[in-house]
């Protein structure tokens, strides 16, 4: 199976979101047909939809109370007008997500981006895609293979480096990740590179020593390049459930995460945990991964995201 074949299956972003949209819109519409009046049972069914999207109980309750408020304000006690309900839901989601936030860039010298997260969320792939994006903008990009733990992680990054056209700074497996980060920064300064992207080892946030190691890598980077790292991106799997909150919380405590990359949105998982994270931790989502191809990384735009979900409403 090659990459070209896969394209047919995963054509474009909105197509991928159709699945999400159809299910939510469909569920709300069938709700409305069945129950013309906004009552507690109606809200319970809305709750079911949101919880099944991994939004989590707290955020779901916040969304729902917001919707009830909006419905009261609009004096539309009757929900027979589906537009009112959908708009309320969409507005509420956009309100929770807040305004879009672009990636930060250093004013001078190389911009350093650290990519962190638990095992298997797609860090190395994200580094590859991100490098490709910067290269396409004409920037000079260096990858640092600071995942010296997982077997063949370095080789995996080197393949992505080739694909993206980025140089990879590497040591041997098992070496100190902070030393790799140091060398990468040195190389970037010597070359006048525009971007340094560090691929760190996946680690469960509950492993204290590994979190300390990450802090150390961050410190080293900050010493070598003033103001670095400019972005610390937490890669989060869209299939993650409520544990995503715990991940975000612990990684933020350790290294002050500046944004989230939500990956694997091309499946059936809704990625609702994003709402919960934004709601309780105020970490913005900056990028989304929507496929295995090198181009399948997009900016996260909260309004676009909500629009795509409730696309029928504006049509």
């Amino acid at each position: 199976m090659n990459a070209a074949n896969r394209k047919g299956f995963l054509a474009g972003f909105s197509e991928r979101l159709v699945r999400t949209r159809q299910s939510i819109v469909g569920q709300v519409q069938s709700l409305i047909r069945r129950r013309p009046v906004v009552d507690s049972e109606f809200l319970e069914e809305l709750e079911a939809i949101l919880i099944q999207a991994d939004v989590g109980i707290n955020t779901t309750e916040r969304l729902l109370s917001g919707i009830s408020e909006r419905l009261k304000e609009s004096r539309q006690r009757e929900a027979s007008d589906e537009e009112v309900v959908l708009r309320a839901l969409k507005d509420e989601i956009v309100a929770v997500l807040g305004p879009p936030e672009p990636l930060r860039k250093a004013e001078e010298g190389p911009t350093v981006i650290m990519v962190v997260g638990v095992n298997g969320t797609g860090k190395t792939t994200t580094v590859g895609k991100l490098g490709h994006r910067f290269r396409a903008q004409g920037a000079d990009v260096i990858f640092g293979a600071t995942d010296t733990f997982r077997a063949a992680a370095i080789e995996q990054l080197e393949i992505w480096g080739e694909r993206a056209g980025a140089r990879v700074i590497r040591h041997e497996e098992g070496h100190d990740p902070a030393a790799v980060a140091y060398d990468t920064c040195q190389a970037a300064k010597a070359r006048g590179a525009d971007y340094v992207i560090l691929d760190t080892a996946g680690r469960l946030h509950t492993h204290v020593n590994l979190m300390r190691e990450l802090e150390k890598t961050k410190r080293v980077v900050g010493r070598e390049i003033p103001g670095a790292p400019h972005e610390i991106l937490l890669v989060l799997d869209a299939t993650a459930g409520q544990n995503g909150l715990s991940q975000a919380k612990t990684f933020r405590e350790a290294v002050d995460v500046t944004g989230i990359v939500l990956t694997k949105l091309d499946g059936t998982a809704k990625g609702g945990i994003v709402l919960a994270i934004r709601d309780s931790l105020e970490i913005p989502v900056k990028l989304i991964g929507i496929g295995e191809g090198i181009d399948d990384l997009r900016d996260f735009d909260p309004i676009e995201f909500a629009d795509a979900i409730f696309y029928d409403l504006d049509a």
């Binding site: 099944q52 999207a53 991994d54 299939t239 459930g241 995503g244 059936t268």
Partner: peptide, 12 residues
């Protein structure tokens, strides 16, 4: 299956 999987585990 990843133990951290959310609601989507049933679909998968």
């Amino acid at each position: 299956v990843d133990a951290m999987t959310g609601q989507d585990a049933v679909n998968v």
